[in-house]
């Protein structure tokens, strides 16, 4: 009799948990859904003059042989990096990570190198960087 009561109670608990998860899972999926969006950052010819240009979270770097873009967000916890023209390095103002001009991690708590942002050049001479958000 006691065992039957225990099994009955267990089944009741399992049924309520199942019922709750039927509601909780769709609710969680709804609440955490985000549509992936892309942000376009346009560097006009006049923005491309300097060796390192910052615009809306992206560093455009002009080197003798190539032009590339790096995300300005630190790979540790996302603070925007500062460019130090004297040392030619990027430094994080929050936790002190340091990266080279090509985006390689030098020191600090960050473990990954900076993300390279894909670039496209338009006919009018603009350079477009596309950042994925969300």
């Amino acid at each position: 009799m006691e065992r039957r009561g225990f099994i009955k109670k267990g089944l009741q608990w399992a049924a309520s948990l199942l019922g709750a998860s039927f509601l909780a899972y769709p609710a969680f999926s709804f609440m955490t859904f985000r549509k992936a969006t892309k942000k376009r950052i346009v560097f006009h010819p006049e923005d491309q003059a300097g060796a390192v240009t910052f615009k809306e979270g992206v560093y455009l770097i002009r080197e003798p042989n190539e032009i590339f873009a790096l995300s300005a967000q630190c790979t540790h916890l996302g603070c925007t990096l500062n460019y130090d023209a004297v040392s030619g390095r990027f430094a994080c103002p929050c936790h002190g990570s340091v990266f080279t001009l090509s985006g390689k991690r030098v020191s600090g708590p960050a473990r990954k190198d900076l993300y390279r942002v894909p670039l496209t050049k338009t006919a009018s001479g603009d350079i477009e960087a596309v950042l994925e958000v969300g």
């Binding site: 969680f28 609440m31 955490t32 859904f33 985000r34 969006t37 942000k39 967000q73 540790h76 916890l77 996302g78 603070c79 929050c94 958000v133 969300g134």
Partner: peptide, 25 residues
């Protein structure tokens, strides 16, 4: 941003849990 990235370090569902509190964009 730091808050969001820290929650994202939670194993399994860190990214989804972070979106319950703050989203980029």
């Amino acid at each position: 941003r730091i808050f969001m990235n820290i929650i994202e370090t939670l194993p399994v569902a860190g990214g989804a849990i972070a979106r319950l509190f703050i989203v980029p964009g």
